[in-house]
């Protein structure tokens, strides 16, 4: 006999929401930690103390010290400002270029659309990473140039995403009805298009943030991003390379930090995708 247990059923329905809530709390925690990092870091992350170098984990230095005697915990915390903070900046800038370009390109169409889309095609013809390397190589290493290079690469996919949503929605009859009712183009875009675009954008941006963190860490690892002594997770990995055998914490701690943040962002993106579909509300 089949026994229906209503409690179980509701539990199963509610679970994704708990997961989503958990992920948002974790992400919020990371952001708060990033913001207050200089206040809670136990030591100055750039203070060199050669007598204290390569110390293992202890009660004094919770995660040990690196090859210059700097406190790794402090460097991880303050380094989050460089790695996570810069990634968020890249996404925000890419969005603020990609959203208007995509809206205008998709809605107006014609020659303007072709113009924007040729630029997009050209940029998409190369892998992101290569363009970012070339640009930051040409412009010279440094965080500002790295951000510039990544924004140039990243706005394209947002413009495309927005444009394709706008084009597919533009053929729906409710847009015709809105036109009949005398709504201006700006009103149609803001009232009818933006709600469709935002859901996709939030999902895409949260997944993309993880990727950008990886790219920034990678470029810093090869020396094109943050310059020493600025703490940055990718740069920390690079600096720890020579001491991997004696002091593996120099590499695995920033590695774990990157992995955790990217993992949280990817899970959050997946859960948001399920959640933002209106029909699942």
């Amino acid at each position: 006999m089949i026994v229906v247990r209503p409690n179980n059923v509701t539990k199963n329905i509610k679970r994704p929401q708990f997961k989503l809530f958990g992920m948002i709390v974790l992400l919020g925690l990371i952001i708060i930690l990033t913001l207050v990092a200089p206040l809670i870091a136990p030591y100055d992350p750039t203070e060199v103390q050669l007598t204290e170098r390569l110390k293992p984990m202890s009660s004094e230095n919770l995660l040990g010290t690196d090859h210059m005697g700097r406190d790794i915990l402090s460097r991880i915390l303050v380094g989050a400002q460089t790695t996570v903070g810069t990634s968020i900046l890249v996404i925000v800038l890419a969005l603020s270029i990609g959203l208007p370009v995509g809206l205008i390109s998709g809605y107006i169409g014609g020659a303007l659309d072709r113009f924007f889309m040729r630029i997009v095609d050209a940029l998409l013809a190369f892998p992101d990473f290569i363009i970012a390397i070339v640009l930051s190589g040409l412009l010279g290493p440094g965080m500002f140039n790295l951000v510039l290079a990544l924004v140039v690469v990243k706005w394209v996919s947002y413009a495309r995403l927005v444009r394709s949503t706008v084009i597919s929605e533009n053929q729906k009859e409710y847009i015709a009805v809105a036109k009949i009712n005398g709504l201006s183009s700006i009103k149609i875009l803001s009232k009818h298009m933006i709600p469709h675009v935002v859901g996709n954008l939030v999902v895409y941006a949260s997944l993309d943030l993880g990727k950008v963190i990886l790219v920034i860490a990678s470029l810093s690892y090869i020396g094109l991003g943050a310059q020493p002594p600025t703490p940055e997770w990718g740069a920390m990995l690079n600096e720890g390379r020579n001491f991997f055998h004696n002091a593996p914490q120099l590499m695995y701690i920033p590695g774990i930090a990157i992995m955790l943040v990217v993992l949280i962002l990817n899970l959050l993106g997946d859960l948001l995708r399920d959640r933002l579909d209106v029909k699942n509300k």
């Binding site: 729906k172 009859e173 409710y174 009805v177 709600p195 209106v278």
Partner: peptide
């Protein structure tokens, strides 16, 4: 099409 005549998100 009554469905396409209404914006699903409003």
């Amino acid at each position: 099409n009554p469905t396409a005549s209404l914006n699903p998100r409003i």
